[in-house]
């Protein structure tokens, strides 16, 4: 293998700094003791974190986002597992269409999805209801779970299934005792990826939430367009911390590099 020259390493250092800078600055400024967005140098304070937990709008939005992400990731997983089985194990007319349809939320701009769903919900009279929001989020995170479920099913040795069937196990038993445990890393990895993406989603949600169902990123977006103070930095730092936790779990159950670059 060829070694990188000093120029290449300097370039690499610049890119790494560029990628980390905005996240680091958010996390450091969150500890400022002052009223303005200044980098704390001598003293650090937790006052802005306390302010976040006392700010009822942010707390309410956090719970909205959390329940929404839990519900939509679960729904997306429940839909994606059978759909993944259909796509990988059956040859049928319409298979390509279904695969394309289920992955299409990755390509269609969330802006367009938000506009389209707002129209539907307005006609149905359910704008901003939590139930519809769960379905809307399930739609945009299904592609993530489906991809990992399909990846798990493609590299699957079916001999254990055949053995169980030949020994008289029912289809249901084979699924719950053999298939599901074997694809479980893909399923949980997909669920976590769906959870993170639902929790972070802003562009579509801003169109279809109502004041009582505003999610945390939407609340932060609206807050940041009006005022910028260290409270926003503290909320952002908490978001970064939460994402980091989710990433560690994702890495343990599935492998972060596999999720991000698809390496086995």
């Amino acid at each position: 293998m060829q070694k990188n020259g000093p120029l290449a390493l300097a370039f690499n250092a610049l890119v790494i700094t560029f990628m980390l800078a905005p996240l680091l600055v958010v996390c450091i400024v969150a500890f400022t003791p002052h009223n303005t967005l200044t980098l704390p140098t001598t003293e650090f304070s937790l006052r802005w974190f306390k302010a976040v937990f006392a700010h009822s709008d942010f707390v309410q939005s956090f719970w909205n986002s959390l329940w929404l992400a839990l519900a939509s990731a679960t729904l997306a997983t429940v839909l994606a597992v059978p759909a993944g089985i259909a796509i990988t194990r059956y040859e049928f007319a319409g298979r390509g269409f279904l695969n394309g349809l289920f992955l299409s939320p990755l390509i269609i701009p969330h802006l367009v999805l938000g506009v389209a769903l707002l129209r539907l919900f307005a006609l149905l009279g359910g704008t901003g209801s939590f139930g519809w929001l769960v379905f809307a989020h399930a739609l945009i995170v299904t592609p993530y779970t489906l991809r990992l479920v399909v990846a798990a099913l493609v590299g699957f040795d079916r001999s254990a299934e055949h053995a169980a069937l030949s020994l008289g196990a029912s289809q249901a038993t084979v699924f719950t005792r053999i298939t599901l445990p074997m694809i479980l890393p893909g399923v949980t990895g997909g669920w976590l990826l769906a959870f993170i993406n639902s929790f972070d989603e802003v562009t579509m949600s801003i169109f279809v939430t109502s004041p009582s169902t505003v999610t945390l990123p939407v609340r932060m977006y609206m807050y940041a367009t009006e005022s910028i103070d260290p409270l926003m930095a503290a909320v952002s730092a908490l978001m970064v911390a939460l994402t980091a936790c989710a990433m560690v779990i994702l890495d343990r159950v599935y492998g972060l590099d596999r999720v991000l670059v698809g390496r086995k």
């Binding site: 800078a21 905005p22 996240l23 600055v25 958010v26 400024v29 967005l37 993170i196 929790f199 972070d200 802003v202 990123p217 932060m220 977006y221 940041a224 910028i228 926003m232 930095a233 952002s236 978001m239 970064v240 994402t243 989710a246 990433m247 991000l260």
Partner: peptide, 15 residues
């Protein structure tokens, strides 16, 4: 990629 885009936008607005 996994951190909310609002957080990253806010980071850049400070920088």
């Amino acid at each position: 990629l996994l951190v909310s885009v609002v957080v990253r936008a806010f980071g850049w607005s400070m920088l």
